[in-house]
Simulated assay, not measured.
Amino acid sequence: MPHNPLHDKAMPMTSINSGDLVEVLPDLVGVTIKIVNVCFVGQPNSDEWVLVDAGMPNSKDEIVDAAASRFGGNSRPKAIILTHGHFDHVGSVVELAEHWDVPVYAHSLELPYLMGMKKYPYPDTKVEGGIIAKLSGFFPNTPVDLRPHIKPLPEDGSLPGMPGWRWIATPGHTEGHVSLFRDSDRAMIVGDAFVTVRQDKLYQVLTQHQELSGPPRYFTPDWEAARDSVQRLADLKPSVALTGHGQPMSGEALRRDLEALARDFDSVARPSHGKSVD
């Protein structure tokens, strides 16, 4: 069998608990909230920072405490940026937006799901995958209502409160999914366009076994768009990537594995069966 570079361990593994802060760059930190990551962008002890994504339901206090430890007790972000509106990325966003009284930004195509108007498709419980895919039918898909805080991302690609960063349309996992990129150092915040732990395999999720892979299968309805999005991100040759699930990746391991994922997407990421491919 030919060697698959996606199976290589990309960086040393350490145990990360919910609420732990992992500094990737001096102004870029990942925070694990149960099974999903949120990001803080900004220098420590600064008033100039942004929260990217909002974690699981009932996680407001955990995120606020993590922000206080990074930026100070009374700090609040300039904005909350959402990569997309799935429950594990917006679980505490309403409470956080009200607590901090800050605007929330997302792609215009995500707004119906963030204004209580539209539900995402139900998860595909019969998609190729492990036990988590089969359990995904229990995951909530009820939309949140972020009015009056929600605003569309600027059409020029800029990101409010994040100078030097731009958003990139990376649909597939959702219609309006976006990833964030900084050209100066090629840092990337990915959301679920790709992840660094197999979300359909219970063992990998529990152990956080690192494996760069495509978006979660049970929640991805458009595999053509998802493949194009991975290629778009691989073309940027990121130096470091923070993903919605799994630990950060960086350097040559990231570039090698992301190029391999883009090249072999249909055989290693796209499921062989399921509603989205049948």
Results as ranks from 00 to 15, higher is better:
K201Q: 14
W167H: 11
D185I: 07
G244T: 07
E155I: 14
K201I: 15
L206F: 11
V205F: 12
L236F: 03
E175M: 14
R147V: 10
P216M: 08
E155R: 14
G157A: 06
F194C: 13
Q231A: 04
T174L: 03
T220N: 09
Y218W: 14
P148V: 06
V190E: 02
S158C: 11
Y218R: 12
V230H: 04
H177F: 04
G214V: 01
L146S: 04
E211V: 12
Q210G: 03
S239V: 05
H209D: 13
G161Y: 04
A226L: 02
M188H: 12
G157Q: 07
A241P: 09
G176I: 06
H177L: 04
R198A: 09
L212T: 04
A234E: 08
L180V: 06
T220I: 07
D145S: 07
D200Q: 11
L236Y: 01
G164F: 07
D185P: 00
D185S: 08
V230Q: 00
D235G: 04
V197D: 06
F181V: 04
F181Q: 00
Y203K: 15
S213C: 15
H177C: 11
T220S: 09
P163R: 10
V144N: 03
A225F: 00
H149Q: 12
V144E: 11
S229K: 01
L153A: 08
Y218T: 12
V230A: 09
T207L: 12
V240T: 12
R217V: 13
E211L: 10
H245G: 05
A193E: 00
V190D: 01
M162A: 10
S229H: 01
V205T: 14
L236M: 13
L159E: 00
H177R: 06
Q204V: 01
P154I: 10
L233I: 13
L153G: 05
R227Y: 05
T207D: 08
T243L: 08
G172I: 06
L153Y: 05
P154L: 10
W223N: 03
A187C: 03
T170F: 03
S184V: 13
P154W: 06
G214R: 03
L236T: 08
D228I: 00
P238G: 02
E155N: 14
A234D: 07
D200G: 13
P215L: 02
L212D: 06
S229L: 02
G157P: 01
T207V: 13
L242D: 06
G164I: 06
T207C: 09
R166M: 11
D156M: 09
K237Y: 01
T243P: 01
D156Q: 11
I189G: 01
P238W: 07
Q199G: 12
P216G: 10
G157M: 08
F181N: 02
K151H: 15
G176N: 04
Y218H: 15
H245I: 08
T243H: 01
R227E: 13
R232N: 12
D185G: 10
L206M: 15
Q208V: 12
